[in-house]
Structures are given as structure tokens and as C-alpha cells.
Design a protein around this nucleic acid. Structure first.
Lengths: 356, 356
DNA sequence: CGCAGCATTTTCAACGTTGTAGAAGGGAAC
DNA sequence: GTTCCCTTCTACAACGTTGAAAATGCTGCG
């Protein structure tokens, strides 16, 4: 197919190593020689074979990103940010979809398909805390999300509890007292999943405000999508529950909540204020625009890539695993009564936490 | 880092080639030997080095996908489909973002960063028909979209004109006569861009119905996003234009149109029916749910991957470039009067899908 | 017993690149 | 003039794998 270094060397009348030296900016090459080589490269349209280079160097310049599904807005936007962050390090990103399926996730980190990559950013959804030992893999791996804590790898996550506290405080500050939570996944919020952590923040904020919790206002949903959010509203209304605010555990749920409220004739924010979580692009275009928690997606992506690059470059160093939590803020929009201009509200806390 | 074939050979007491033979299921290996090798592989946790394999074989098993931005729903969903299609062929997908920038797009197909891939799926937005010659690259390339036709490569695209005709016919069939178009990008629709083709379909359908076109109802927008769609509505209303339907050239615009209509107090679909284009996931959850053209994204992705795989595997064959257009259908939902429950629908060519 | 025919395994070279070692050439210092 | 150093360039080997071809050993048959 393409010309090789050998062809270039032949035309330029030098050794292949000299061609290599020119390409890699080795200092001791005479300008005359350099130009001759560059001319030959141009003439042949030569491009270095990255596979061969990768074999020599032991690196490919590619990192893997394993997420559930790109059609979920949050992960598409995360991938977008990761690709941009990786580009700054000169890295390409190979995207793998796990569908949130535990077996697929395990396959991905088994390295079965990922051996072309220098390391992997992994956002599990199907695997849980019990699978933590499986993360002890022989290649650089950075964990994203909330499914597994205190694993053997670096971990980038968000302030789930404190941002949920801040969210509820925001709702309290605009006078709401009967605040529903939409998106619980069970009755036991003692684990470290997103829903549990955010639910604990919700309960803590109510406690601190001296407001008695109402378990009828803590709604489970079959899925974290718009249908789930809308269904939760219909259920609560059918039961005759009274509420003046909804904290949805992600934006997709919140958008469904907005739809559900419209369908039952409740006004937002006059009758019910709504807050989501994730700050996906879409939230700012909803009707009304959606107040939401920006969990620091850009920062999460940039940090994750940086940690991975460090692990890749200092392979020998068996430094202890690090955990980083991104700063969050609440983006206040129409669904909680803010004007059309978004205004950041609450800011966050320390970033690096050492392993416990 | 990892164990090599050589290590396995040493432990199993065979040559490296025998290890290779076991791994590649070469038939003439004694079961005893095979088992010994497999045991050694298991013991060492050996994984073949794909880089070395790639160097030998000249292939990497990775294809590139170059799209504008993953945060645009359509491209996220396209990437999702492409990754799934590629997986069926045992291929990984390296995703590159061009931001729709012409120079970045040219860089991507120059092969500067993509040399690790066996071929590229390329969805240009910044480049245009004039850049067609640049697509004559020395590696397999499959073109997606409408920016460039009759180029030197395989091309997968959609039925822009006829699906736009069908869309307008759908609006006519429910009694609408003053149909606005939102998303034009200029006055000259003679080129082959998405907007031009769809706009020509719009005009043709009106012509065929004997309805005089009203250029005041053909609206340009700064961007194909929700803000652009909403702004177009506000402008038309401010100008006092009368219209009973809107054909938005993509779903993002259509969602903005829905918002704009609500803001000015027009009901959908009673006062104004709305149709979008793309059938992104989001469209089915809008309020009201959005009637839209499904341009056959799944089929486009699967076809594009297949064409690329063929080119990769028959590299010598300089077969003439092929063009494939995916089947489309119109998905009828609430924004044109379809109820939430499957109801009588207006047919479109060549297929119609019932609302979900 | 010798050899063809086959199953099994090995040796060798190659994919395209880069690190290591060192050779060739020129100039400065003695 | 000799020695030493510096610049510039080259030869060789190696990264881990696999195709081609050759080597080994066994079976059956004349």
C-alpha cells in the first residue's frame, strides 16, 4: 500500500535510520540531508506506519473508552469531552459500548478486545461493588462513576451526596417544602450507587432543615429515562400525593417529569419546581428550561484522561490508587423560577481524596 | 508487561510457531500439544499482542469514524449504530471529532492521525462538493451524508428529496396548506447539501399539489439547533405570517419550533402541525411527541460498515465507487395529530412506521 | 527393509520502525 | 603530526507475530 521508510531512504540516498532521525527530529542531521529526506517523503507521500512504531515502542497512542451507550446523552457528551481531552495528549479514543450489561463489562476489562489500547477509561453500570477485585487488571485502567468505590484503580467521580444536599437546599430556599424524589431504584440506599448517594443527600438536606421525610414522595422508576419520570408523576398524582417540587435523579427523568406535569395540568415552576442532574445539553432547551446539577463532566473527562496518561507513562510506579471528585455547581433555570439567563449557584469542595 | 508467545512456548516446551498455530486453530496440532500450550497460556495469562499481529498482517481491526460532534444527538446515535455494526465484523471504532470544521476534516482524511485504522467512515460537514478530489485517498474511505456527491469513493446517503416530498404530502393530507419550512441556509438551493435537497423536495411537493409557494414561509436559521428553530417561529409571528404547519429540516430545529410555538401561544397540532427530520431518540419524548422522518440511520450505519469492510478486504480491486441510499419512513406522532395510541396514519413512501 | 505419504512441529525470514553501538569525516588542541 | 572530540551518518538487532518451507517422526505398503 503506502511507501515505507525504506523507499524514502532509497530515494534520498541515505539509510533508513537517517529517515527515522529526520522524522523524529533527531538534532544531528545536516540541513542538506534533512531537506533531501523531506523532499523524498513529500514525493512519495510517505506516512510512518504507526503499527510498526507501536510495536517498537510498546504503545499505540490509543486509549479505550467503555460506556453503556452513546445514545444516552450523558455518555455521548462524556465521550465528546474525553475525545477532546485525549486529543490534547495526542491520543485517539476507541469507543466500546457495554449496554450496561455486566457480562459485557467484564469482557471489556478482561482485555479480550482492548489489547490495542494503552489503557482504558471504564464507566461500569452493570458491575457493582462486589466486582471490585476484577478491576485489578494488568493494564492502566481508570474507573468512572459510582458503581465501585475503593477499588484497586484510579477513580474519577462526582460529589453525589453534597450536590444532592445543595439541590434540595436550593429548592428549600425558594420556599418549597414538599419535595419529591424521582428515580430511586429500591428501598435500600446503603450502597454506593448514584441513586443511593443522591438519595442520601436528599434525606440529609431535609433532616438538616428539620423537615420530616415522606416516603410516599420517594418514587422508584423502572428506568432512568423520560418515560420513567413521566410515569412517576402520574402515579403520585393518582395517589393524591401533594408536592411542590421534584428532584429527579438525572436529566432524562427530569424531562419526563416536565412532560408528566404538563399532562396532569400542573405548572412549572408555579405549582411544582423541578431539578435534574447531569446538565446535558438538552436540559437548557427544555420547556421550561431545566434547573440541574452540573456534575463537572468536562473536568471529569480531563482528569480521567490525565490520570490514565500518568499511569501509562509511569508504568513501573505502583502508586496507590487515587480518587478524584470533580467540582459541581447548580445551574439555575426556569424550572425553579430563574429567568432565561442561567446563573451558577453553589460551588464545591476539595478535589483529591486518598484511599481509605 | 504481558507475557509473550515466546514465554508460552518456553513453558509448554514447544516452538513459538506451535503456540501461534494453537492460537490460530491450525488443524494439525496434536491434542496433547494443544492442551499443553493452552495450559501455559492460562498459567501466564497470555494475550496475543495485537500490534505485532497487525504489523504482520497489515491490518489493525480498527476503523475510524469521523463525525462533527458526538454531543449532537444525530451523530451520537449514528456512532452508536456504527459501533454495533462494526462489532459484528469484529472491528473496533476509533472516533474522531471534526467540529464540522473544514480544515480539521481535511486533516482527518489526509491520514495524519488515522494511520492506525484500516479505513475510515467520514461524515463531512465543512467540506463541500469542490473538495471531492481530496477524497481520492490511498486508504479505504466511505463517505456519509450529503455534502459531496459523485466523489471517488463509496457513498452512503439518504433519500433527502423524496422523503421531503413525502413529508409535505403528509402535511397536505391532514389538511394543511400554509406550510412553512425552517432551516434553509441561503437562497440558492441548487447544490447538494441536506438543506438544499430537502428544500427542493418541499417545493416539488407544493408544486405537485398546485399550491403556490410563499417565500416568506421559507425561513433561514443561523444554526440547526433548537435556538434556531424557536427564533424562526418568533420571527414569522412578528412578521404576521400565517401558517398551519412547519417542516423543520432536522429534529433539533423542530424541537425548537415546538418551544417557539408554545411561547407565542400557538397549539400543536391544532393550530400548527410540526414535522422534523432524523428521528433522534429525543423526538419521541418531546411534548407533544414529534412526527419526523426516520432516514434509516441503522441501515446507513450497517451499509457503510459493510462497504468499508469490502474495500478493506479487496484492497486490490479498484471497483468503481458505489452509492447507496437507505430506505426512509415517516414516523407519525402527536405533532401532526397522531394520538399516543396507534391510529390511522398517512402513508409515506416507501414505508410507514406506526407510532410507538 | 525401504520408502512414500501424511501429520506434526520447527526454522527462518519478514512486517516497518527505532535504540544501541559505532564508523566516517572534520576540526581543534597539543 | 597525533590525539581527541564532536557532528553526522550507518549497520545491526530487536519489538511479537505469522507465512513459507523445511524438518521430523510415524504408518502402511510393496
Amino acid at each position: 500500500m503506502g511507501a515505507t521508510m525504506h523507499d524514502v531512504a532509497l530515494i534520498a540516498g541515505v539509510s533508513v535510520k537517517t529517515v527515522s532521525n529526520v522524522i523524529n527530529d533527531y538534532p544531528h542531521v545536516r540541513p542538506v540531508t534533512r531537506n533531501r529526506v523531506l523532499a523524498a517523503i513529500a514525493e512519495l507521500g510517505y506516512r510512518p506506519n504507526l503499527t510498526a512504531r507501536g510495536l517498537r515502542s510498546g504503545k499505540t497512542g490509543i486509549i479505550g473508552l467503555a460506556v453503556p451507550e452513546l445514545r444516552e446523552n450523558y455518555f455521548a457528551e462524556l465521550a465528546d469531552s474525553v475525545i477532546r481531552a485525549a486529543e490534547k495528549h495526542g491520543l485517539g479514543v476507541l469507543v466500546e459500548q457495554t449496554n450496561g450489561d455486566r457480562d459485557t463489562e467484564r469482557l471489556v476489562i478482561s482485555g479480550a478486545r482492548m489489547h490495542f489500547t494503552d489503557g482504558i477509561l471504564f464507566s461500569p453500570v452493570g458491575m457493582g461493588q462486589a466486582d471490585a477485585p476484577l478491576l485489578d487488571v494488568p493494564f492502566p485502567l481508570v474507573l468512572l462513576g459510582e458503581r465501585i468505590f475503593n477499588g484497586p484503580t484510579d477513580h474519577v467521580t462526582m460529589h453525589n451526596v453534597s450536590s444532592a444536599v445543595a439541590t434540595v437546599e436550593h429548592l428549600l430556599s425558594i420556599g418549597r417544602r414538599r419535595i419529591a424524589l424521582v428515580g430511586a431504584e429500591g428501598d435500600d440506599d446503603s450502597d454506593a450507587s448514584s441513586w443511593s448517594l443522591r438519595t442520601r443527600g436528599y434525606r440529609r438536606a431535609l433532616d438538616q432543615a428539620g423537615i420530616p421525610g415522606n416516603e410516599r414522595l420517594v418514587r422508584r422508576t423502572s428506568h432512568w429515562n423520560r418515560a420513567g419520570g413521566a410515569a412517576a408523576i402520574h402515579e403520585m398524582v393518582a395517589e393524591g400525593q401533594e408536592f411542590d417540587a421534584v428532584f429527579a435523579l438525572n436529566d432524562a427523568l427530569a424531562l419526563g417529569v416536565l412532560r408528566g406535569l404538563q399532562e396532569v395540568g400542573l405548572r412549572v415552576p408555579e405549582d411544582v419546581a423541578v431539578v435534574g442532574f447531569d446538565n446535558v445539553d438538552e436540559s437548557q432547551y427544555a420547556v421550561p428550561s431545566l434547573t440541574t446539577v452540573d456534575p463537572g463532566r468536562e473536568e471529569i473527562a480531563a482528569t480521567a484522561v490525565e490520570l490514565l496518561v500518568e499511569r501509562i507513562n509511569e508504568k513501573g510506579v505502583k502508586a496507590p490508587p487515587r480518587t478524584v471528585k470533580a467540582d459541581f455547581h447548580i445551574v439555575s433555570r426556569e424550572s425553579t423560577g430563574a429567568g432565561p439567563v442561567p446563573s451558577p449557584l453553589v460551588a464545591a469542595t476539595p478535589r483529591v481524596e486518598l484511599p481509605t
